[in-house]
Design a protein around this nucleic acid. Sequence first.
DNA 1: GCATGATCATTT
DNA 2: AAATGATCATGC
Length: 220
Amino acid sequence: MADQNTPRSEAELLTNASGLAGKTLGQLADYLDETVPDNLTHAKGWVGELIELALGAEAGSRPVPDFETLGIELKTIPLNARLQPQESTFVSSAPLANTVGMQWETSAVKAKLSKVLWIPVEAAKDLPIAKRRIGSAFLWSPSYEDEHILRADWEEHIERIAFGRLDELDARHGTYLQIRPKALNRRELTAATNGAGAPSLTLPRGFYLRTSFTRKILLR
DNA sequence: GCATGATCATTT
DNA sequence: AAATGATCATGC
């Protein structure tokens, strides 16, 4: 079983993560003295937080990788009954103000995706949460081709934002990386820059990896 | 409000 | 059934 202290090395983290494979969320919750919610409607982050606790992630809500000294980001990946990803993966909030001049190389998206520890977890809706099994964790970094496409997507999104075409933002753009709302509700507003370069307000958005892309990652 | 963790619910 | 758009919880 994984311990609750932060791992000192990548190998230690991988060993701990591998130790979760085959366990159910119920077993892990018992071990950690956590309560399994009846459903995730009001606990959407519960699985991710449980795994963080099990592996000793320390970032909390700070904008740094879960395992800061190792430079590794932890992501759970929900699997359907066919063991394929069933949801997109949130990466980071999208910058909507003063985006002119932003570069992929120094972007939050590139930083977040540079090294990810993926942990597959069964998530079929008809499977009780406590009975859902954790899968085999694996460390991933984007391939050269992946990064090329991610960069092109990011640049396309940022260009749209930089020109103030906020009304054109929608989830259909982007091959691997899409932009979708990331807010409490549709009335939420955040600072943006409009087409005239003036301050404005718009719905907060986030960058997400399409399910079709995480499916490819899983198959590697 | 924005960062963390995501899934839900409706539309296509 | 899959994709898009909307939403939920928590901490500071």
